[in-house]
Design a protein around this nucleic acid. Structure first.
Lengths: 238, 238
DNA sequence: CGCACTCAGATTGCATACAATTTAAACAGT
DNA sequence: ACTGTTTAAATTGTATGCAATCTGAGTGCG
């Protein structure tokens, strides 16, 4: 566990919810892979890092467990999730159901200012795409997810927004684990195209394209159930 | 807070997760309205009822807060959720996106034994429908929700199943709050029809009917935003 | 040399103690 | 009487202590 920005960001109203802040910080660390899947998150360690008691650290870990970013085993502790290929498929199946609805919802309610903000976001995403190195790659995955989250936030359904929060976060984990290549080179242009269709008010086509977009993301994954027979095979070979 | 079955049910493996058991128990109490919306759930009281410390009670309340069945305000405590009409609409909008997918998933994977179980469940539901009294009404709402949950469980997507758990629970609250009449007299026959279509393998029509079914449930609600202008109006009148 | 066992260290589960905050009740002033 | 203030009770937020459990190194035995 190395560098975690302690989010001294907003000392205002939100600040007085420390377990939430820790959750946010760990969440970010997980989704852009500063914390690798399988990493143990001991209560004492997390508490020490953020200068709180185990009680608060524990609460944060519980929340992350609920969102599926962390798996806890009784009497053993909390670990960064290591999604299986099957879980990955379920994540994307869920997104295929929800995101077209998000898009049509967003198309109805989006404003000109929203669109401007989206364009900015997409340009930033493009910047990361053209950079090299693992840091840029992580930032790219994060930014790519943020597009979907922004869409969810303008769709005006808090419940779906929360579901998407979870799904996008877990997708980032999956992409980092199973991603094949220069991931979103194609995905990025699709973001632009989706935004254009929404701007034009063509919700139907935008939703369709979103479906394809999700297909493309999943198609770029290498979801072989390697672990399932690993032991048997290993024994058979030796 | 009156009678909460202490679920002495399974003293076996599952037993060693007390906060989970408490969550389950409170959850049931909330969705069939033994705990009315707005009721305060103090940590000490919950702890005393289940004979655990505040720590464990608190964890249970945190989980319920995450699923939206309970709202907690900082330094004030936890209260049974009192969903607004707007939240209600969001809940049903979410279900409209997810449940057709659940149905098609279930249609692919359902077995003959599953179908038999479903039939049993529907018959039990019918029994409650024909009884009188608030207890039967509560049982009816619960059983009606269980049909949707069983569908989700055979669809084979753990994530969607969890989402449905939350949505169905919150729907029960909404129906109890805003329900107009002999709620699911129509809804029930639709359950049968949906099951029949699934059995025949006609996933498309089953999904369509599910959509209509959700529409019918929501149509039976009285979602006037009464509170929004209540104060202003009250002042204007006097 | 390998295997099982034991025991110490570390970590989680839970209860409890204390500090911070809210609530409402008593009280005083007008 | 009524309003505003003060004060005490109750409740939540957080830290910490103890018991239960797990892990792994060391040890003894085959």
């Amino acid at each position: 566990m190395t560098l975690l920005e302690k989010t001294s960001a907003s000392p205002d109203l939100l600040t007085e919810d420390r377990s939430m802040a820790i959750r946010e910080s760990l969440r970010n660390a997980i989704i852009d892979r500063r914390l690798a899947p399988g990493t143990k998150l001991s209560e004492a360690e997390v508490g020490a890092l953020f200068d709180v008691s185990r009680t608060v650290a524990r609460a944060a870990l519980q929340m992350l467990t609920f969102e599926g970013l962390v798996k806890t085993e009784r009497n053993r502790g909390a670990f960064v999730s290591n999604p299986t290929p099957d879980e990955a498929r379920q994540i994307f199946a869920s997104r295929r159901l929800i995101e077209p609805g998000i898009v049509t919802g967003a198309a109805e309610r989006i404003t000109a200012e929203d669109i401007a903000r989206f364009r900015e976001q997409l340009i930033e995403e493009e910047r990361y795409m053209n950079e090299r190195g693992p840091a840029a790659r992580r930032a790219e995955i994060k930014a790519s997810g943020d597009f979907h989250l922004m869409l969810a936030s303008v769709a005006g359904n808090a419940i779906l927004q929360r579901f998407m929060d979870e799904l996008v976060a877990r997708s980032s984990l999956v992409i980092a684990l199973y991603g094949r290549s220069g991931v979103s080179s194609c995905g990025h242009s699709e973001h632009f195209a989706i935004l254009d269709l929404i701007e034009r008010g063509d919700a139907k086509r935008a939703a369709d394209l979103m479906l394809h977009h999700i297909d493309h993301i999943e198609a770029d994954l290498d979801l072989q159930p390697k672990q399932g027979v690993a032991l048997k095979d290993a024994l058979a070979i030796t």
